[in-house]
Design a protein around this nucleic acid. Structure first.
Lengths: 136, 136
DNA sequence: TTGGATGCAAAGGTTTTGCAGTAAT
DNA sequence: ATTACTGCAAAACCTTTGCATCCAA
């Protein structure tokens, strides 16, 4: 399929690139609507899926909220805080060699991998949250 | 909350423990219904969530199908095949040290982590699938 | 001009919830 | 006797899709 360039897709990508952190489709939609009321949620979903397939953005399955997106261009892992439900980037820890290892072991072809760490983020630790029993 | 033991929950856990592979909530529901018509999907969901929270079963976010569950008792990673959409266990490759590493780096408390590898499984490679453009 | 992209609304699929009844402790 | 658990159906949610229109190439 040949893709044309659309204002909506361009703005969406630009917005994600300039936004640090993770956004849901709905949040992306709301942010874009601030500039142009006429954009639709369907378009946001269509473009998020397209850009994620093209690896121009990252799609992360958030354990409780649905899919989240970020515009980082380098591969990275995520920390999901069970207390505040936040999603945090983990920098400088991408294990390239893992793909080869699994490729050999599974006799498969590995394209990429994702890691999500589960725990309590720095800020929640300071607050002394005890997270509905997980930590008690 | 104090939990009582119910027939439904017991059977569900037992079934998952004896079933090798991954099942969706719907599939769990159908399997359990074979033995007892009267079980409900809501009960299946409630128990899957409960058992996953208690770490008695694993919940894996399948990229396209929704949540999948397995009854393995040891931690392991998964391979998602983009061709057949299958989910495969990866044995003997659990990196305990990763948790410490991230704990230090993020000043967080890490409880666990999950890895999903994306690629093409052995069987699909043999079939020479070329997966709707991902590999072309 | 042509085919991809959009907006809108409707539909789809998965998961959760309210409630009255049932069963475990 | 309590209180959690169940079944059922309705509701909630997130995401996708059909279609007529619009717009980029």
């Amino acid at each position: 399929m040949n893709h044309k360039q659309s204002k909506q897709r361009t703005r969406l990508l630009e917005m994600l690139r300039n936004h640090y952190g993770h956004l849901s489709a709905e949040q992306v939609y709301n942010k874009l609507k601030e500039e142009d009321k006429r954009i639709s949620l369907a378009t946001v979903y269509r473009n998020l899926n397209l850009l994620a397939e093209q690896n121009k953005i990252n799609k992360i399955e958030h354990p409780t909220v649905g899919s989240m997106y970020d515009g980082r261009e380098y591969p990275h892992y995520h920390l999901h805080c069970e207390a505040c439900d936040g999603l945090f980037d983990i920098q400088g820890l991408y294990l390239n060699e893992l793909n080869d290892k699994v490729e050999t072991q599974m006799k498969a072809r590995i394209l990429t991998h994702r890691i999500v760490f589960e725990g309590i983020c720095e800020s929640c630790l300071k607050k002394g949250s005890n997270v509905d029993g997980h930590l008690t």
